[in-house]
Design a protein around this nucleic acid. Structure first.
Length: 471
RNA sequence: GGCGACGUAGCCAAGUGGCAAGGCAUGGGUCUGCAAAACCCUGAUCGUCGGUUCAAAUCCGAUCGUCGCCUCCA
């Protein structure tokens, strides 16, 4: 059974077949860089990072492109408000975005094209569309002629006549059809502009993605991704532009992620309920966010709130524990236990792959990961040695790496200076316990807990670690 | 108004025809001086109504509810 991918274009799952053997050309719509990236951007980036990692795990070479829209009305407006150069503004946010992506453990794209670096290709494409009759210049603008494209609406499942009823009455009546959209916009005074056959101006939003794809990948790509809020009009228009010009199918599979739900509604600028990635990361771990994304179907809305994040942190702790070595005095587990462990390795790996093959069902695959976790922990309790646990733990590390989870025991980061003193107190308490001075021993433990240090007593002694978001 | 998605245990959430995964929480137990962690055990007939079928959470119809797109949006 091959990988199955749900294709928005056909509204069903289809077997994944690449244009070239073992190679995937994948393009995902990136952000318009006029502000700090928010957790909705993170959600989309995580979804496609997971898909990309999984395709690589399955042996594909993935060429992954994600653009930056760095020429746009909103960027220009904000730059004017702040009295800075629009390109400097965009550059700053691009760097912020790349920093955020690294923090979230999102693999860097093969290429990050920017609209402002693709102007020649954009102009060339617009000229081509005019030549073929799919576009027309109008007072320095250029518009796409939607009525000329019989397929227009095939991605979003709309037809032009239905859409017309929804069009605002004050629609620009210079255009041939209200649904015609801008490929090129004439420059207004004070705006950044490039010379073109139609006078100074700048590209419309939709054309950049088409031009970048053509430039970097050619006429056809395997996977085109983005948030499902981009299906219309953005992706619909991309298809119209690209396929009208080349006559070839633009993207074989259209993959769309669901929206992040904050307090029951979509997070967006217009609603003003934005949480930036920076803000998020001061409170929570990147792994916790990734877990939320993994734990649900990428096409559905993902619920985001404090309770769910707490549940995620605890679930991750469970996986982290399974990666710990065996007890020091472990004498080796019984043959039956080791057989079960060996069986589970095969079962978990097969289950993981079969489930992920089904349209990247990460939530289902996560169940297979947790089964492995349970059996590892059980085996440890049954006396398995570190060597005996290792193959299963290697697989656990392998699968969670495909998911992009770091699972670092890094909660002590930045606190290392205090470690010797903590150890001193822990050792002291051990003495108190051997003297059966429980009251004082408990006092030490309670006060360390209050400082964010978690103690765990066992037969071999006491281990300790820093708790989450504490100390 | 048009197009689309979703509604599964206290919470999050897989599962699209054959006895309902997983995580968090809860309760009980093992271990522990106590605790923590870990381990074992513990719960739902799938919004509602009707239909198809030997068999439905899963297909069809209706109904209620939630959400998204149709304007910039990941």
């Amino acid at each position: 059974m091959s990988i199955q991918i749900y294709n928005t274009l056909t509204r069903k799952k289809e077997p994944f077949e690449t244009l070239e053997p073992n190679k995937v050309k994948m393009y995902v719509c990136g952000p318009t860089v006029y502000n700090k990236a928010h957790i909705g951007h993170a959600m989309s980036a995580l979804v496609f990072d997971i898909i990309r990692r999984y395709l690589e795990y399955r042996g594909y070479t993935v060429e992954f492109a994600m653009n930056f829209t760095d020429v746009d009305d909103k960027i220009i407006r904000r730059a004017n408000e702040m009295n800075v150069d629009p390109f400097d503004l965009a550059e700053g946010y691009i760097q912020d975005f790349e920093k955020n992506m690294a923090e979230l453990n999102i693999l860097p794209a093969t290429v990050n094209p920017r609209a402002s670096h693709e102007i020649d290709q954009i102009i060339e494409m617009v000229e081509g569309l005019i030549e073929k009759g799919y576009a027309y210049p109008l007072e320095g603008d250029v518009y796409f002629r939607v009525r000329k494209d019989p397929d227009y609406g095939k991605l979003s499942g709309r037809n032009l006549d239905d859409m017309l009823s929804g069009v605002r009455k004050e629609a620009d009546d210079r255009k041939e059809d209200p649904m015609d959209f801008a490929l090129w916009k004439a420059a207004k005074p004070g705006e950044p502009a490039w010379e073109s056959p139609w006078g100074p101006g700048r590209p419309g939003w939709h054309i950049e993605c088409s031009a970048m794809n053509l430039h970097h990948f050619g006429a056809s790509i395997d996977i085109h991704g983005g948030g499902n809020d981009l299906i219309f009009p953005h992706h619909e228009n991309e298809i119209a532009q690209s396929e009208s010009l080349t006559g070839k199918q633009f993207a074989r599979y259209w993959v769309h992620n669901g929206m992040l739900q904050l307090r029951g509604e979509k997070m967006s600028k217009s609603l003003g309920n934005i949480i930036s990635i920076d803000e998020f990361l001061t409170q929570h771990s990147a792994d916790a966010f990734r877990y939320l994304v993994l734990n649900s179907a990428y096409r559905n809305p993902v619920l985001f709130n404090e309770e769910v994040l707490l549940q995620a942190e605890k679930a991750l702790d469970r996986i982290r524990f399974a990666l710990r070595p065996a007890n020091d005095e472990a004498a080796g587990a019984a043959a039956e236990t080791l057989d079960n462990l060996a069986t589970q390795i095969t079962r978990s790996k097969d289950g993981f792959i079969n489930t992920m093959d089904d349209d990247f069902n990460s939530a289902g695959a996560l169940a297979h990961v947790f089964e492995l976790v349970r059996v590892i922990n059980h085996s440890r309790d049954e006396g398995a040695t570190t060597e005996e646990l290792l193959p299963a733990q290697d697989l656990l590390r392998e699968l969670t790496t495909v998911f992009g989870l770091r699972l670092e025991d890094d909660s002590s980061a930045g606190k290392a200076q205090a470690d010797p003193f903590v150890q001193l107190l822990v050792d002291l308490r051990l003495e108190l316990r051997s003297l059966k001075n429980w009251a004082l021993a408990d006092q030490v433990r309670d006060q360390l807990t209050a400082l964010g240090v978690i103690l765990e007593d066992s037969k071999e002694g006491t281990t300790w670690h820093w708790g989450k978001n504490n100390g």
